[in-house]
Design a protein around this nucleic acid. Sequence first.
RNA 1: GGGCGAGUGGCGGAAUCGGUAGACGCGCUAGACUCAAAAUCUGGUUCUAGCAAUAGAGUGGGGGUUCAAGUCCCCCCUCGCCCACCA
Length: 952
Amino acid sequence: MERYNPKVIEPKWQQIWEDQKAFVAVDDSSKQKFYISCMFPYPSGVGMHVGHAFEHFIVDAIARFHRQHGENVLNPMGWDSFGLPAENYAIKTGTAPSLTTKTNIANFKKQLAILGVGIDWTRELNTSDPEYYKWTQWIFTKFFERGLAYQKESLQWWCPVDKTVLANEQVEGGHCWRCGSVVEKKSMKQWFFKITDYADDLLNDIEDLDWPQKIKTAQTNWIGKSQGAEIEFKLEGSDESITVFSTRPDTIFGATFLVLAPEHELSKTLAVGDFKEFTESYIKTAVKKSEIERTNDTKEKTGVFTGSYAINPVSNEKVPVWVADYVLGGYGTGAVMGVPAHDERDFAFAEKYNLPIIQVVQPETGKPQENPEYRKSIVAIVRDPKTNKYLSINWGADLGGNLFVGGGREENEDIVETAIREIAEETGYTNIQLISKTDTIHHNYFAHSKNVARRIEANALLFELIDDTKINTALEANEQGKFTVEWLSEKEIVAKVRDELHATSFDLLVGGKIYHGEGILVNSGEFDGMPSSEAREKIVDWLTEKKLGHTQTTYKMRDWLISRQRYWGAPIPIIHCAEHGAVAVPEKDLPVVLPEIEDYAPKGDGKSALARATDWVNTTCPECGGPALRETDTMDGYACSSWYLLRYADPNNTENAWSREKVDYWSPVNYYVGGDHAVAHLLYVRFWTHVFYDMGLVGFKEPVKKLIYHGLIGAEDGRKMSKSLGNTVDPIDIINQGYGTDALRTYELFMGPIEIDADWSSKGIAGSYRFLNRVWTLSQEYINSNDKSVTKNDNAIRVAQHKTIRKVTDNFRRLSFNTAISALMEYVNDLYKFKVDGFSDEGWHEALVTLVQLIAPFAPHISDELWSQLGGEGLVQNAQWPVWDEALIIEETITIAVQVNGKLRGEISIGKDEAEADVKAKALAHENVVKFLTGEPKKVIYVAGRLVSIVA
RNA sequence: GGGCGAGUGGCGGAAUCGGUAGACGCGCUAGACUCAAAAUCUGGUUCUAGCAAUAGAGUGGGGGUUCAAGUCCCCCCUCGCCCACCA
């Protein structure tokens, strides 16, 4: 009998698949298509580790599953080959990036073949191939025509090591995403794609995507839509004005200063007299500061007064204009109104620089009720400075839990006196001193005891205990014995005091919190007494009428900066003419081919090495034929990857980027599989497709129907798997150790749910190998058996077989590969038990053929081998996936549990159609159940086919 | 600070609807085969007590709903990830 030897059967079947073109997808619109793709890889020099392989295994298993269902499956592959590593390697060694890329791709292809991944190589694409980037450039010129690609001088992130600008998405915590060095700001003329034009569109369509919620949330937050108003503040003694953006125009009467970002254009010009020098030097250092420095200093705000004043448009008060780096240049208008009473940042700034603080919103808690009864009251918080604990009254869970001392106040009664009286009456403490108190807090609630809605005006007061002198408490009749007095720590208070009014009181007096919620306007002229939400609209209406403001929607997302001062990318197809400015290269002259050069290193002059290829740079203007210069910046690699999913549908089209017919057949992608990129790539690819839709190039807006976001495989040491840590595992090594790729694939898909991170285990793979070995041995024993006459277990085998088909199919559909594989292991374990009685031709052949078909998505080589040994026609993937028969799964007798008072006390065996009364009687008669019953059971519950629950 | 997610044996994990918690695999362990080892096969393996039948405890902690809770509700703790001065 032959032993299971993956080293023989795996190459054998890989060759057969290749010879038969088993994975070539044919453009046949009469068939149901299924398009799946991983996020195409960057072909790095070090090849793939088992973590990368994992992604391909997921894709391949799903692709094979769908082929087995007779669908027309497209699983393509391509190379995201532009980028820094190849260029940096070229700078170091002088080897052209095009050459290293070629070598690396060959290596990746070899690895994928050995892994047994079924790819349609006739559709292979490569972003650094001129045949591909010709169309990337063509798309650029179309965007340029539509005003979606534009050039602008602006401050940009600059990586001093890689000597290039970076997109916002490529700056991670103030560091370059590639080399990790601290990024700087630099002002340069740059190319942008106007993604902000599509902000609303992209935001609205997120909801309907079948994508993981965390990715959808990340994109929503990234787009960061917020609604508010732009408000104009006139500068004193000048025609100029400053426009601020605020989401809280209702607080404008509390705006006691303005703050400009250091990058704001007025920052430099506004400073007057003695303030000029300070302001200029502040701006200089602030702009130079790295992002980390600026975000690290969150506690300590800095800024300078410009010496200029503006006029608050509603109050006509003079407010000073400051420059401070806590205001961001790139968001909103780069200027804000400082409302220290209702914004934590403005408050911190105002405190430091002694700016006036005017409260304009009185807090309101609880939900307003209809026809409330009006009352006045106090909330009194007492702190014991010796223990740092707070006096609390515990009313018990039914009466509201922990509160502070509180009580009603008569119309003319003094607030402080009321509080002191209530403290003495309820707790007995008398020797206290007032520390601080709040303004009015409005509170709405329903007094269930009196069955009345109430709206109260409360004041909260904070006292300190001088000593614990106490008098007898003087409780009202309805309070006696209802509560206990407790001293609680700050932490306990936060945890236990649930009442909104009392919790807010504590936050304001002790927590030092600034109230930024909704409430009732005060100190706001004609708007006094209005709820803040209503005032928000009324004030903007008023400003609009006076032409001093208007509603405004703002996004956190900025336009996508795409120019890179690097060599190894797609050249931006633009020619600069002295007369005609920036002119797009006409379609007939595309592609603008990247010239071969000697020295790839950027020199830090803000230009790519391309700028030194003078023969290439000097050209003629397409408009006038006069001398002109080529754009020397190249495109961000994300541009290349924003349309490749469409190109796969029509990869060899030399006339167009794609034909709409083919793209509309294959697209959108049914499953897009990846474990990287939450925002950047996945937002850009959506953006481009939306634009293509508007251009009439595609018939859909969203390129990816379902996104499968898998977890990452960590190293055995629990750390991230990376070449620099020296803990990577090469899948080819594992295969060569004798396990084979089938065992590797099965193991990686068995480790856990695909969306969960998991660490590699060198021992775990042995278990998967053992499983496949058992499958092999069982099949060989069946095939070589001389006596196949035993029919004893045929029925039981059939039950196991159909149960397994059902479970594997169900689990596969919800991409629960680990449980699908465990069901197959159980099935094999069952067959081993049946085996001891011998084999039958009928039951066993069917059982083994089914097994081979079910393991095929995971372990395709062994299954094709056994399929052919068992007499199957062609390849497993072309045979129809087995179907289970529900009728065969029903067993004649089943075992169910019997519980007494919720505890398992025994098991009984019942027939499949046994009547409920009989089952209950059987349960009650069970020996062990009788022991736990004292007399008649109160209740007997039968859950069909599962258990009997007896209440004693 | 904000958002999202997760806590189940020695380990990875299972339990799709509230219905026998720990499937399946790893590891460990006993046995069979072997001169021996590897490989393979068979059994055991949540914890505590007991020779055993069995009993008690048990899904991060506390409370609740229910005949029945890993699963539902309330509170707390811990860990992970992402975003983070966005006015």
